[in-house]
Simulated scan of single mutants.
Amino acid sequence: MEATDLRRIPSSDPLRAYRYRDGLYAADLVTAALVHLDFFTWLAANPSDLAAICRHFGFAGRPADVMMTLFCANGFVTREGDVFHLSDSGRDFLLASSPWSLAPYYRSLKDRPVTKDYLKVLSTGKPANWGGYDESADWHRAMEDEAFARQFTAAMDCRGVLMGPAMAQALDLSRFSRLLDIGGGSGIYACSLVANHPKLSATVFDQFSVEKIARTRIAELGYADRVDVRAGDMLKEELPGGYDLHLYSNVLHDWDLPEVRQLLAASFRALAPGGMLLIHDAFIDADKCGPLPVAEYSALLMHSTQGKCYSTAEYEVLATEAGFRGFSFRTTAADRGVMTAGKP
């Protein structure tokens, strides 16, 4: 197998391969709404804001928000201010009374396990189990198991071999010296940053089940002299000090608003004055009407984690609340981007 070079990115386009995986569950969410709930027929007669939709169907706010973002991104619904309306294509193809209704076409798939999962997630707001791992364990509890943690971390490391260098090469970090990679998993993103920014050293901060995995992978990549690992619980203890860069790479999207607020506030407290926050993730547009591939990926996250893909506007509001200023955003690779903000 060819050695991993974190200063190189492939010349071919990875989007099709990534989008099949990231959008895997979106069709099940459409099926749940169309077949089990007849949601689009109701919306045609009752244009509503998100709160009214939640009241009528008994939905929790987070999954309902993800669902409506997906439907807007597909053009099934439109939004006027805060009010959602069924679009012309929605009336043609998703309305029960339409001669072109596709509900019977979708109905043969109504008993797919993930479709049924969405009915529970929409009503409870709680994630379903991750990919059939164990019916009693959502993703966060499953990560406490070493075998699952190893499997999941390897999957995210595979993705990071592309996304890490693309992120690193999009940033000018010449004035920074010490990075804390919070929830850094295998260390692939920390290694990517130090590989492309020679003045940087880094610490991966993640839970105990990942510590050994991260140390092994960092050594394999050849960065054990510049990237170390510290085990801890980012939601139960203060973040370590002495760093002028904080990175959340594909981390905040696993959590609901209270945890995201908590983590950003913890970063602001711990980060050195003049330091920078990096959020590397898949971002919903500020108007929450796209992009479609990210809206589809958000459906997967909503199903299996406590989070979703947040919009650029939501992150700016949350980071501003924590005290950060001076935001910028740029796209990187595979429908991802990186947002930066500074601590005055």
Rank of each mutant, 00 (worst) to 15 (best):
V66G: 09
R107N: 14
I9N: 07
L109G: 13
F152D: 04
A137T: 11
S249D: 03
A286F: 09
V66S: 09
M234E: 00
G274M: 05
R325G: 13
L29C: 04
R215P: 00
G160Y: 01
F208R: 14
A270P: 05
A299G: 11
S311Q: 10
Y20D: 15
A231I: 01
L86C: 06
A195R: 03
P291T: 06
T41W: 07
A190T: 05
E296W: 05
L318I: 12
F40C: 06
A219C: 11
F59Y: 04
S48N: 06
L24K: 15
I284T: 08
G160A: 11
D88S: 13
A270V: 02
D111R: 14
I279F: 00
L193Y: 01
Y105C: 14
A26P: 06
M234H: 00
H140P: 11
W42I: 08
F283T: 01
M143D: 07
L235G: 02
E80N: 12
E316M: 12
P10R: 11
L264V: 09
D233Y: 04
S108A: 15
A64G: 07
R261Y: 06
E144K: 15
A202R: 02
S174L: 05
L245E: 00
F283C: 06
L162P: 03
Q306R: 07
N74M: 14
G187V: 08
T305F: 00
P104H: 13
Y106M: 08
L70K: 01
L180G: 01
L271M: 02
A26T: 00
P10I: 12
F40Y: 12
Y106G: 05
R217G: 06
